[in-house]
Design a protein around this nucleic acid. Structure first.
Lengths: 212, 212
DNA sequence: ACCTGAACACCGTTCAAGT
DNA sequence: ACCTGAACACCGTTCAAGT
């Protein structure tokens, strides 16, 4: 976490200072409402200094999105590690993690999945970080199939279905398409559990009577 | 479709001309990349003329999003009407409609669900159009429960789960988070069917052995 | 090597003025 | 009533210049 070179410039590490400033502003108001100029100002440099470290504004946003993808993936992997009940419980726990991450970081979810970053393919390491998230889910699905608790089929497609469910719910909550405030207490929580139940019911290899 | 007043102004109906021009530009390049000035230019008026008909750019975008919500809802209602096999088939058909709409109109889906429109609550008729979409799905879920083919539970939560699944898939496809081009032929189609199957497996009231 | 300041071509929005 | 054109305060980005 130290500057790689001397102290011949302002911040020791302007790139990290820009990241920090940008992340804070985006967390508050969303990437659409934050300009590169005010990020630079918040980092204490002139409005063109960022171009020494990023090709353009998109590159800075892509860097932050990449970090967010890796953070969420790390949360998933830790949860998988610390959940003892097998793949079904692990997948359900990851789903809850995902929704909680979205609720706690709504503007980050938009950055990761909205089209703030226009040309996704222009940022290969971002693509990789996104694929990492998908791969982790796929691993759990494969484990569940191997254990005979998840139904047969292409694991990538089953993982996609699981991802779609929790991502769709997160996206609807964050976008306020679903009553959030002003809804009966615990509505989001119960909606999440209903989604998880639907996922478990749909992915399970066991007949319905056997479960729970 | 006629101008409500005389021909004392350019287009007969500038508001509609603005809508048309905006919709075409957004379909091509996405709302984030289209300016109000070029929409006005495409409609053949000065860059401030739009303010006679919309409070600001957000209001124009909200108008288009509202139209898109109503279009998708109309598609759903027609599908429900023309699908004979009962609520399960109707819900599955709506899911396929939803994903197809997203693939055919990626930039519209972003407009409807991304955070291009910053203050969702500032546009009450847009909120209503969005709720209409949810209500239609809820109606099918209620019908399925009444017929005993869908499991018991709060129909709003079950409808939310169904919506989440197809919306999440659509959103991942449109955002290119899931291999689209360059993927094995029919990957999206098979992924969609896997999602629908998961939905049906999760929402069904019947034991697994009885289905299909 | 790293940062600044002026400059350029754009934005969204306002407002007085024209018909 | 409807539209225009100048003006304002912003953008992202480029580039010559400073240390």
């Amino acid at each position: 976490m130290q500057a790689k070179r001397g102290r011949s410039y302002h911040h020791g590490d302007l790139k990290q200072a820009l990241r920090d400033a940008a992340l804070e502003l985006i967390r508050e108001r969303g990437a659409e409402s934050v300009s590169l100029r005010e990020i630079s100002q918040a980092a204490g440099v002139s409005h063109t200094a960022a171009y020494r470290h990023y090709a353009d504004k998109q590159a800075l946003l892509a860097d932050l999105a990449e970090e967010a993808f890796r953070t969420l993936d790390r949360i998933h992997r830790r949860t998988i590690e610390s959940t003892a009940g097998g793949p079904a419980d692990q997948l359900a726990a990851c789903g809850r993690d995902y929704v909680r991450f979205a609720i706690d970081n709504p503007h980050l979810l938009s950055l990761m999945f909205g089209n703030v970053i226009i040309d996704w393919h222009a940022h290969p390491s971002l693509v990789l970080a996104g694929q990492g998230l998908a791969t982790t889910l796929e691993t759990v699905v494969r484990a569940g199939q191997a254990a005979g608790v998840f139904r047969a089929g292409d694991p990538r497609e089953l993982a996609l279905a699981a991802w779609s469910l929790v991502h769709g719910l997160s996206s609807l909550i964050v976008g306020r398409r679903v009553p959030h405030r002003g809804a009966p207490r615990g509505y989001v929580e119960r909606g999440t559990e209903t989604c998880i139940k639907l996922l478990m019911g749909g992915i399970s290899a066991l007949p319905k009577q056997r479960r729970r």
